[in-house]
Computed example of a mutant assay.
Amino acid sequence: MPTISMFYGILVLMFYRDNRQHHLPHIHVRYQGEEAALAIEDGSILAGSIPSKQLKLVRAWLEIHKDALYVNWELAVNGEEPFRIPPLQ
């Protein structure tokens, strides 16, 4: 489960071959012991939860990097290494 970005204490991960559980392109986010899976398309929460402030930051980052995230998703589901994506600044 490679970390593809980190910002403001938030880790953004994309698991290899992770297209069975949620059936949508998504990322995993960790913040201070809490975890959530978010759809790349609209930032909706598929599982778990993170605090509202961090969720807003992740959703803004998702919107900025949506195209790169879809490329990473294709790499990851095929078992290839996704690339790092710049953090939110």
Rank of each mutant, 00 (worst) to 15 (best):
F83Q: 12
I40Q: 00
Y8Q: 13
L46N: 06
E74N: 15
G33V: 08
A37H: 11
W61A: 03
Y8D: 14
I10F: 06
A36I: 04
K66T: 11
P2N: 13
S5H: 08
A47N: 12
T3K: 12
E63I: 11
L46I: 04
A47R: 15
P82G: 05
W73M: 08
L57W: 10
H26Q: 02
H28D: 13
S49P: 01
W61F: 09
A60Q: 15
S52D: 15
P86A: 12
R84G: 02
E80T: 02
Y8C: 11
R59I: 06
A68K: 06
Y8M: 13
L88R: 12
G43W: 03
G33L: 08
E80M: 07
E63V: 14
Y8I: 04
S44C: 07
P87H: 09
L11W: 03
A76F: 03
P2C: 10
E35V: 03
K53C: 08
V77F: 06
I4F: 06
L46C: 02
L24E: 09
F7N: 08
L75Y: 09
E41R: 08
S44W: 03
W73G: 01
Q54S: 06
S52P: 01
L55E: 05
A47H: 05
L57N: 06
G33I: 07
D18E: 05
G9R: 12
A36Q: 02
F15W: 07
P51C: 09
L62E: 05
F15C: 02
S52C: 12
D18N: 05
S49E: 13
I64P: 03
I4E: 04
K66R: 15
D42P: 00
W61N: 02
L24H: 07
R30Q: 14
G43T: 04
L38T: 05
G43K: 01
K53N: 13
P2G: 10
E80A: 07
Q54P: 00
A76L: 04
I40E: 01
K66E: 07
I64A: 14
G43Q: 06
V12C: 04
